[in-house]
């Protein structure tokens, strides 16, 4: 936990970095609230560390199953209007978004 001081689990810096990653624009008040909430929640959750999981395989799914595949059959698509009608900003059959700069 590189960015947290002492026994603190989440710092204000972490909160602000996480908010950025999640594309959430949080004001000071919200940042305080979530810093406090995450700290409280994780402090309670850290009790799972009493269990030794070194030899344990992680479970990605509730049960084991595999190879759900479909055949390579292309089907005709529905008219684009079916989706474009949901969007506010459309031009020339495309969705319009703020300029994406690289």
């Amino acid at each position: 936990m590189s960015e947290a001081k002492n026994d603190e689990l989440v710092s204000r810096e972490v909160i602000s970095r996480i908010a950025k990653l999640a594309r959430l624009d949080l004001d000071d008040n919200e940042q305080n609230t979530y810093e406090h909430d995450l700290e409280t929640i994780l402090d309670h959750f850290k009790k799972i560390n009493v269990y030794d999981t070194k030899q344990v395989e992680p479970a990605y799914h509730p049960h084991d199953y595999e190879n759900k595949l479909r055949e390579d059959d292309a089907k005709p698509s529905r008219p684009p209007q079916d989706w474009l009608a949901l969007a506010k900003q459309v031009k020339d059959g495309c969705y319009m978004v703020p300029k994406a700069v690289e």
Partner: peptide, 23 residues
Amino acid sequence: QTDSKIFCSCSTRFGQQPNTQCC
């Protein structure tokens, strides 16, 4: 070189009108 996309049955053909091969 598949006929359909990796996770759905839309066509992979190149050069079609925008958003016409979507689901």
